[in-house]
Write a protein that binds this DNA or RNA. Structure first.
Lengths: 366, 366
DNA sequence: TTGAAAGCGCTACCAG
DNA sequence: CTGGTAGCGCTTTCAA
């Protein structure tokens, strides 16, 4: 079952057998090649990837680090990466960072040991690698100081674990590995980003076009870049349509279903007559908000319109169906592999575009 | 950066360094051991898993085969497996079979090459490994003929690819590997199953207890074991409560959202006055059904009650919130690892229990 | 306890 | 084009 056996069975040297089975192109006489293949088939030979790895110095694998497999956000990306990787003959090894920067660093270290061809980091949507367990007071040290422009939020991220991570990845890259970040820009690696700003911009214009004038926005904390970008794009879109957003109706809340519920409850409580429509920066928030409105006696889509962002599956399951912006996460994953496999020089970047989907939660006015 | 360097730095032989860092227990003088560890730390040494693998003959990994990462059913299982595996210091490599038995076989072959410690197959919920691409006429040959009792549905499954798969896994197991199947029983491997029958049974009793008497059931094709089990459990539960199910109201449809919609549409069309409540064998079907009822002018939860199975996230996002049976998929994944890691002799089995969750879609009657 | 050395299975360089 | 053969980095007898 080893190459040795195959070679003997085929009556050639082990070197020839190796070449016929794996090595570079046509340097084996066709006849010999087929004898080897026959022998391999007969003996049910399977190459030993680890042995190949130690001999060549790298494994035909792509290491994928996600925050949480069960989160549709990550699993959609994972699906894309897996699909593209398998098409390229690469096996995916997946690790879960659980939104902890330390864990992420640890994993990258371990994974590097496996000598994968590619490392893909599908980070969270929070600034500074992942920030949920990071100190909130901003005194964290950022390892990649040179490029940490003040005010862009990158300073969040735990005492130097971010710097260590970047260092680790840079070494890996210098040694010939490919690194791709999904939705984390500003790092010296290939990057796939999502067009949050543009999508929100177009959504705003579409809603303005549908006749809406008085908007409310439910957004997450400033440190959530995704939220920030979406709000920025949305505001700009409104402005382009000649509409201004009243600060009183921009409500900061959690980036969760509960957050959306809470914000809507508050809004309904203090009287929502002045707003015709709510834009929540994510679908789960929007869905929570719809329930809250209903609980407060307002019928979503009639008394108050609601729009979200992400176009998650349940957007069409709720009543009324939710207007949203579709984010092709799976494509983002595929694109990440394309970047990794395409030869381009390292710090390359592509942006995945998003698409507005109007549904019954935002009926055209009049 | 190799063991060699560490050994030199510590002034010991490479063999000693190996023993100090990885090998079996206390056979190294404590002083030497700590010197080696110090050297390793100083040099930032990272062992090369592939080299270890080729030397020892196995990798500290668990190979996980799922049908589709983006499907919450699989991603929840994957999350559990990953969590437990990481806790045990194992890396997970994931492969996607895309519901094709051939692909699954191919993957197992490839994965075996990696010499993983464990192989976990999270099969589909269809009989015969995966049946979607299998012939429908039942003339398929089943490789594991001996145990293929007629009528238990196992005959479905593509010309011997199932037999080949079993053979492949048996060889692997004989060579010391551990195999665990999730939700596929009747195979000579460790198995984690979901208590579909019991859950459905309890659901039926709970609904009977809430005052319901006239039931309809939306089920999938007979070849979908999950559906079959749930229907069987449900029927038994009703019987236990002294209720019988009218065959006219057992509707076979697709195991999808669209299937649920279609079934409900038909039922509403021919008049649903005779039924008080519909049990759909999955939540997605139930949700589709709710929409269809609404489209037909019936208010779910008022004019007609609806219950599902799985307790997917959106069960609480729909209106009214859906009564369902929670299936702890993540735990199933963890349990799979526990089986694999626990020493028990191979064909062991555990069942994951399910829990009824009553919500507004099935208000108590009167 | 420790070191020397024989592999593990495969690749790739070097002569032929 | 092909066959030796020297590694790849690590584990594990086998003596010492």
């Amino acid at each position: 079952m080893t190459l040795h056996d195959v070679a003997r069975e085929a009556g050639v040297s082990i070197a020839t057998a190796s070449r016929a089975l794996n090595g570079s192109a046509r340097n084996v006489r066709t006849e010999n090649a087929s004898r080897v293949r026959a022998a391999a088939a007969k003996l049910d030979y399977r190459p030993h990837p680890s042995a190949q790895a130690v001999a060549r110095g790298s494994t035909p694998t792509v290491a994928l680090v996600v925050g949480d497999v069960a989160d549709p956000y990550f699993s959609a990306i994972a699906a894309g990466v897996t699909q593209a990787a398998e098409a390229a003959g690469l096996v995916v090894t997946m690790a879960v960072a659980g939104r902890s920067p330390q864990r992420e660093l640890e994993l990258v270290r371990t994974l590097r040991g496996q000598r994968p061809r590619v490392i893909v980091l599908a980070g969270t949507r929070i600034d500074g690698t992942t920030a949920s367990t990071a100190p909130k007071d901003g005194r964290a040290v950022d390892g990649a100081a040179a490029s940490a422009a003040p005010g862009d939020g990158r300073a969040v991220g735990g005492t130097d674990t971010r710097g260590a991570l970047v260092g680790e990845l840079e070494e890996y890259q210098a040694a010939g590995g490919r690194v791709v970040m999904v939705s984390q820009r500003d790092l010296p690696f290939d990057t796939v980003t999502i067009d949050n700003t543009g999508g929100a911009h177009r959504l705003a214009r579409a809603l303005a076009g549908a006749g809406y004038r008085r908007f409310a926005v439910f957004r997450a904390s400033e440190s959530v870049r995704t939220s920030r970008d979406r709000v920025a794009g949305f505001t700009a879109g409104l402005r382009a349509a000649g509409i201004s957003l009243d600060d009183r109706f921009v409500i900061e809340t959690e980036f969760t279903r509960g957050g959306g519920y809470e914000a809507a409850r508050k809004l309904a409580e203090r009287g929502a007559d002045e707003v015709e429509i709510v834009f929540a920066v994510s679908d789960v928030m929007a869905i929570g908000a719809m329930t809250a409105f209903r609980d407060a006696g307002l019928v979503p889509g009639e008394d108050i319109a609601v729009a979200g962002f992400d176009d998650i599956d349940s957007a069409i399951d709720v009543t009324p169906a939710l207007t949203s912006v579709a984010v092709p996460l799976r494509e983002a994953g595929q694109e990440a592999m394309r970047l990794a496999l395409g030869g381009g020089p390292a710090p390359d970047a592509v942006q995945i575009s998003t698409r507005v989907v109007l549904r019954e939660s935002t009926p055209a006015r009049r």
